[in-house]
Simulated assay, not measured.
Amino acid sequence: MPTGFGREEDIKLSKPLAILACIALLISGCDETPSQKTDDTWLAEGKTMGTFYRVKLAGPPQQALIGLKQKIEQQLAQDNFELSTYQHDTLISQFNRYQGNTPQAITTGMADIITLALRIGHLTGGAMDITVGPLVNLWGFGPDKQPGTMPAQQQIDEARRRIGLRHLKVIQTAEGQWLQKDLPDLYVDLSTMGEGYAADHLASLMEKQGITRYLVSVGGAVKVQGMSPGGVPWRVAIQKPTDEKLDAQAIVDLKGHGISTSGSYRNYYEMDGKRLSHIINPETGRPIEHKLVSVTVISPTALEADGWDTGLMVLGTEKAQKLALEQSLAVYMITKTDQGFRSWMSPQFRSFLLSDNSVQALEHP
């Protein structure tokens, strides 16, 4: 069952451990459960995409609840079939195995997510790169196991020769959408944005059912609409970057927007006395080593937030701040300093803020 809720309408947010960890919305350790309902609340949660999903409704129309749990899981299964690199028969796995350059048919949703990924990749100077899979796998954060020794520079260089957004093209016509690559072994990994993609689809499903008061989350991506069961806006708490406690760093009112957080402080392993983050810098081919530990982005869609947070994490504090201001993004960043964790937020983020526990003081590790 969910844990760590300060109030019934509050939920805490942090990126999950790649796609393998328990959901970082503090719904950790839960097994799939049937839907639950009280007089004014309906809840469904379960496993998907190697993480957990959660759908909470306030005062839903009774007719809309008929078969809703099944519809939710059908939608998530479809998203997983499109995007999962852990299953052999998914659309993206089929594309990754294909060694030619003939455009391959994809769904409208896949065309949308890849087009957005290419746009964010361009704006971040390649920091957000959905072709970085060979490097992710090399460092042991993908379907492959962790390496027994630190990858050699020759291995890194070889993997870097197999990545690059310039090798990928989305073709959209009135007849459909296609994906094309000019590098035979180009490997596309959409897990970076998959949680936002699925969260938006769950939100769309709620709207189609006539449900206007909901909170949906998949992994670290959240989308809300309307009021919580308590009659106040849904509140999302951004977690402090620590492994040991689950405290809120800041609390926001999303106002119908999506939110996603990328962090380097949970999904890592240690080798040769060095902590290696799951976030890989495509430029160096290595895990990031800067002091930026968490980036939260609020956008009109969870998908957009899910794309931006990773790109900004790769850039590091100064470059990420500069780009956030240039693009008018709603961003909240936490950087580790010698004195503790220091937060920074863009002007756009401040409009969503309800409280911030780090504005006046540093949170010491």
Rank of each mutant, 00 (worst) to 15 (best):
Y268S: 11
D253A: 12
L17W: 06
L76D: 05
L362M: 10
E32K: 09
I259W: 09
A111T: 06
D185G: 00
T284W: 01
N267Y: 10
S351V: 14
F95L: 05
I156F: 01
S260V: 14
V188H: 04
S277G: 05
R97I: 05
K169R: 15
Q155S: 12
V136Q: 01
G230Y: 01
T242C: 11
Y265P: 07
K71R: 14
T337E: 11
G258Y: 05
L362P: 04
Q63H: 13
T107E: 04
V232C: 05
I113P: 03
T173H: 04
D247W: 02
I113D: 03
V359D: 12
L254K: 05
R97H: 14
V297M: 03
D185C: 07
P229L: 08
Q154W: 00
D10V: 07
P287Y: 03
G263N: 11
S228N: 04
V331G: 07
L168W: 13
Q348M: 09
S358Q: 12
V55T: 10
V216C: 14
E158G: 01
M313A: 01
V331D: 02
G220R: 03
L165Y: 09
A203K: 09
M110I: 14
V232T: 15
L246N: 08
E73I: 10
Y98P: 00
R162G: 03
S277F: 07
T212H: 15
Q62M: 11
L26N: 10
P184G: 06
D356P: 13
W178I: 06
E283I: 10
S204T: 15
A111Y: 10
Q155D: 07
A77H: 14
K322G: 00
Q36H: 13
A44T: 08
S14L: 12
E318D: 15
D243F: 06
Q239V: 15
R213F: 01
D31E: 10
S93P: 05
L292P: 04
V170E: 03
D356F: 12
M345I: 05
T3F: 14
D112S: 12
T310Y: 01
V297I: 13
F52R: 15
N96K: 04
I23S: 15
Q209C: 13
S228P: 01
V218W: 12
L205N: 08
R235Y: 00
K47G: 11
I11G: 08
A324G: 07
I251F: 07
T317P: 00
F81G: 13
Q70V: 13
G126P: 09
L362C: 03
F341C: 07
N96F: 07
V136H: 02
K319C: 01
L202S: 08
G50C: 06
D243S: 07
H122V: 00
L186T: 05
G226Y: 03
Q348H: 11
A58V: 09
D338P: 02
T192K: 06
G29K: 01
D79Q: 11
Y197N: 09
V295T: 05
S28G: 15
V252N: 08
D157V: 04
H290P: 04
E9N: 13
P60R: 10
K71S: 13
L13W: 02
G126Y: 03
L246H: 10
T108Y: 05
T296M: 07
K15C: 06
S355G: 09
G125P: 06
I113A: 08
L20T: 12
T212Y: 10
L91T: 14
Q153P: 00
Q225R: 15
E9P: 01
E175T: 12
S328P: 00
I130L: 06
G50R: 08
H290C: 05
V232M: 11
